[in-house]
Design a protein around this nucleic acid. Structure first.
Length: 359
DNA sequence: ACTACAGCTGCCAGTTCGCG
DNA sequence: CGCGAACTGGCAGCTGTAGT
């Protein structure tokens, strides 16, 4: 276990193992392209400093093949892929200091022993123990609950593939987690004088490595937050961008309002209701604010109500400053009698990056 | 093959709000 | 104060997709 904090920004994928079996076939080309996209971006981000990519051998072969090259897994010479130095998991990676000055490491997947090999080891090491061994049925590992440590010391519940026999589970961790940690240790994070970046492209929690960003694979690929790649956030973006028509000048936030203002994205009141499910108004407002800010638009939130009998006020946002808000609102939604300006969103609030938390 | 989850729809019960 | 429109939230059932 690491007792000191590694000086690194650690990003880990939460929703995929990225095991070789999910990368090697033709149907996984897109997945491999996404990995290449991450590699290229990190090479760029590192400026002239070096980036190390560690992956299983079979995956490296495939990535080279995609690129019309061949990977030589016998050579001890450094080999490059899209500007990054590549290595494979395994004994050849241990103990060396060659990579201590690298700025970034990207781990692709993880090395997990085949269950047969694991159970051979289990028999070899513990076959004569007093406690009888237990084995998987049909070579299938079970999902077991553990937790992952975040950089802020909170924990997230996650599942890992595990062996039913505790000794088998220990052997599995020993080879799988340790391989990844060993690879990361090549960058000498503890002694680093400049902070480094670590990208773990696999959802196996590494006990010694507090994670700063625990993100969906798609979010890592697009270099965004989970929220920004969520279906709902993107629906709202499409709605505001006008889908097939012109960009909206304002949008109502109630289910029926969304349906009327953005028919392409919310074709029925029900679909708009679905969108609003588990999404507090406050969050929707934040999203609209951040979408507007992204596009350099001013935004003002409004409260609308009908002048006739009954009815509930409805929230809306117009994309203009507080000054013009009332006019625009009356123009867009003449059927409402009352238009109350409630809040103007700053175009950008000092901090350019608004942090969107998962719901 | 199995599980988990997202999205859609219909249905229902309950709340909020302002006008008359 | 009562009414009714619009909003809120929950549940069940169905479908399709993704991950393992």
């Amino acid at each position: 276990r690491l007792l000191a904090r590694p000086k690194a920004h650690v990003i880990q994928v939460s929703d995929k193992t990225l095991a070789p079996s999910t990368l090697k076939d033709e149907e996984h080309k897109k997945q491999r392209d996404d990995i290449v996209r991450i590699i290229k971006r990190e090479v760029e981000r590192a400026r002239k400093r070096d980036v190390l990519v560690v992956a299983p051998k079979s995956v490296l072969h495939k990535l080279y093949e995609d690129n019309g090259e061949t990977f030589n897994d016998k050579s001890s010479q450094p080999q490059m892929l899209h500007g990054a130095t590549v290595r494979w998991f395994g004994p050849r990676l241990l103990g060396i200091n060659t990579y201590s000055d690298f700025a970034t490491i990207i781990l692709v997947g993880r090395l997990q022993l085949p269950v047969v090999a694991l159970e051979d080891q289990l028999r070899a090491l513990f076959g004569d123990s007093d406690m009888p061994l237990s084995f998987t049925d049909g070579g299938r590992l079970k999902a077991l609950k553990t937790s992952l440590l975040r950089a802020d010391d909170t924990r997230v519940d996650v599942k890992v593939q595990s062996h039913p026999d505790p000794r088998g589970a220990a052997l599995l961790r020993q080879s799988r987690e340790a391989q990844s940690e060993q690879a990361i240790a090549r960058l000498r994070l503890l002694g680093a004088n400049t902070p480094k970046r670590v990208l773990v492209l696999s959802n196996v929690p590494l006990p010694g490595l507090p994670v700063n960003e625990w993100l969906k694979f798609d979010a890592v690929v697009q270099d965004k937050s989970d929220v920004q790649v969520s279906k709902k956030y993107q629906s709202l973006e499409r709605a505001i961008d006008g889908a097939n028509g012109p960009v909206l000048r304002g949008i109502r936030l109630s289910a029926s309002g969304l349906n009327k203002d953005a028919k392409d994205v919310f074709p029925s009141v029900g679909s708009a209701k679905e969108f609003r499910k588990k999404l507090p108004l406050k969050v929707i407002l934040e999203w609209v604010e951040s979408i507007a800010a992204d596009r350099g638009l001013p935004a003002t939130s409004m409260l609308l109500s009908k002048s006739r009998r009954g009815g509930h006020e409805t929230h809306a946002v117009v994309f203009t400053t507080a000054k013009g808000a009332r006019h625009l609102s009356q123009h867009l939604w003449p059927e409402f009698g009352k238009h109350i300006v409630s809040e103007e969103f700053g175009l950008l609030k000092n901090e350019e990056t608004a942090v969107l938390e998962p719901i």
